[in-house]
């Protein structure tokens, strides 16, 4: 028989964007430790629905750690206590029998709560729309060898491009700053030849949009890096800082 545990959940319940929310306690017994965290929440919701109550709203899609949909703050850790792991990839064996598990939504003015654990992350989309792309003529893919890329840059760009835009960096930052996300998106282009023509205007536009969305300022706490399920490095933030300084001082 599979090993099971009992846990006490305290889940943030909030009817809609305007209603005040509060933590509601759910006692869960016989939780199979091989279940994922979201499967455990599915069980909670099944119980709630059978009782005719409103299920807990939470975001999820791929459930394999690649889409960036899921994410809640679990006992004060964005995506829970497991390093470099999305909430959907967290398993109940990470918890002990009798644990109290507090589950809260990402907290940031720029990420308003829509319902329960679901927040509106469209601020990230607007930052991308402000410059997180390359303007090129469409057409067939060019011959790969026609644009040489140093191996080191290719690796760093791939590391930055691992960002799934989940927002854990904002959630974990004491200042609710979005610098890790934005710097990863800036870096993946800044490191590659294709990103060079728009390198300066891109960083200026994306940072301006980031500031306008009401995220906090970076104080180099590095909580973002510790929380990131993809291990995005704060060296991307340093790269964005220097790109921004150069671009800001040299553009009219």
């Amino acid at each position: 028989m599979a090993k099971t545990i009992s846990v006490t959940l305290k889940v943030w319940r909030q009817k809609d964007a305007h209603a005040p929310g509060r933590l509601v306690t759910y006692q869960m017994n016989n939780i199979d430790i091989d279940m994922s965290f979201l499967e455990m929440l599915d069980i909670v919701n099944q119980g709630l629905e059978l009782k005719g109550e409103d299920p807990i709203a939470f975001d999820h899609d791929c459930r394999e750690g690649i889409c960036g949909s899921c994410g809640s703050v679990v006992n004060g850790h964005a995506h829970g206590p497991e390093a470099e792991t999305t909430l959907c990839q967290l398993h109940m064996r990470r918890f002990k029998n009798g644990d109290v598990i507090v589950i809260e939504p990402w907290r940031a003015e720029a990420f308003p709560v829509i319902k329960d654990l679901v927040v509106d992350r469209s601020a990230f989309d607007r930052i991308i729309a402000a410059g997180g792309f390359i303007s090129v003529r469409t057409g067939s893919a060019p011959e790969a060898h026609s644009v040489p890329v140093p191996k080191e840059n290719a690796d760093l760009a791939m590391d930055a491009a691992q960002c799934i835009g989940c927002g854990a960096c904002v959630a974990a930052c004491p200042n609710a700053s979005a610098m890790l996300f934005v710097s990863a998106k800036v870096s993946q282009f800044a490191l590659l030849p294709q990103g060079q023509p728009e390198r300066r205007s891109r960083v200026l536009k994306m940072v301006t949009q980031m500031d306008n969305e009401g995220f906090g300022n970076c104080s180099n706490h590095y909580e973002c890096e510790a929380a990131c399920p993809k291990g995005i490095s704060v060296s991307n933030i340093a790269r964005m800082n220097r790109d921004y300084l150069c671009a800001g001082l040299t553009s009219a």
């Binding site: 703050v73 809260e104 940031a108 200042n175 609710a176 700053s177």
Partner: peptide, 23 residues
């Protein structure tokens, strides 16, 4: 500005990076 960027605080918040007190 930083305190305005998160008006609703977490009930539980567990910082995990280094040099927490000074930061």
């Amino acid at each position: 500005e930083n305190s305005k960027a998160r008006r609703t605080r977490y009930e539980v918040y567990t910082p995990s990076a280094d040099n927490k007190f000074a930061r």
